[in-house]
Each structure stands twice: as C-alpha cells, then as structure tokens.
Amino acid sequence: MDAQDYSEVIILAPTGRVDHTSAEVFQTELLEHVTKCAAADKHIILDLSGIDYMSSVGLRALMIASKESKKTDLTIVVSALQPDMKEIFEISRFHFVFKTFETTAEAIKGFSDAAVAAYAAAGEG
C-alpha cells in the first residue's frame, strides 16, 4: 500500500481489488498504518481511487480501522471513490463512518496549512 507523508497527514493509496483473497493483507497493512500514525500524531487520507472492487471483507477491514482510530486522536478520511465504490459506500452507509471527499486535494484542505503546502509542493495540489 503506497504511503506518502505530507506534514501531519499520510496519504495511503491502495490499488486493485479488495476481495476474499486480498482483504487480509489489506487489513493488516491498513492497521499497521493506523498504529504508526496514532503513535506519531498523524492523520490518514485513504485515497481509494486505485480500488475498483471491494467486497464486504474489505469493508470490514475499513470498519475495524475506523474503530481503532476512535481509540486515539487519529482521523481517517476517504477520498476519490470510483463510481462502483461510491455505490458500495452508499449501500453500506460508510459515508457516516468516514468523512468522504471527491478528490484527495479536497481532503487535504481539511488539515493544516503545512500539509496543504507540502501536498502542493509535491505537485499534487
């Protein structure tokens, strides 16, 4: 899972399918990032633009990550859902679990000026 550091924000950008074969690895990696970010006082933007399929095992991993984050001050937001993923999120009412943004550029605006500047400096803004 690709991870990029922008001040107090980490952007995680998993790719591919999260299904019965890959969900376990997805969950393990995601929770590792949650633990690390909580310890480092950082927040997570989960850029799901590279995910084109997620079954309930993947949603379960996201819910576990959300519950873990609630034990700390860590914020997780989700960005850039593809249309099929957006449908899955809507059915599962996951927009009540995670604040979601159309783009990652929009999502990072919710964090510090330093994070926005670092993101822009990387040519992403």
């Binding site: 819910m63 059915i91 599962s92 009540f96």
Partner: peptide, 18 residues
C-alpha cells in the same frame, strides 16, 4: 445496523445488505 452511529456498528454483517 447501518442506521446506527459508526461507533455502535458491528465490524461485519455487511454482505447481506449489499
């Protein structure tokens, strides 16, 4: 339990609603 607040939802049970 999709109508509940995130904190009160189970981690599973999402397959049948889909």
């Amino acid at each position: 339990d999709r109508h509940l607040a995130a904190i009160d939802r189970r981690v599973g049970g999402l397959g049948w609603p889909l």
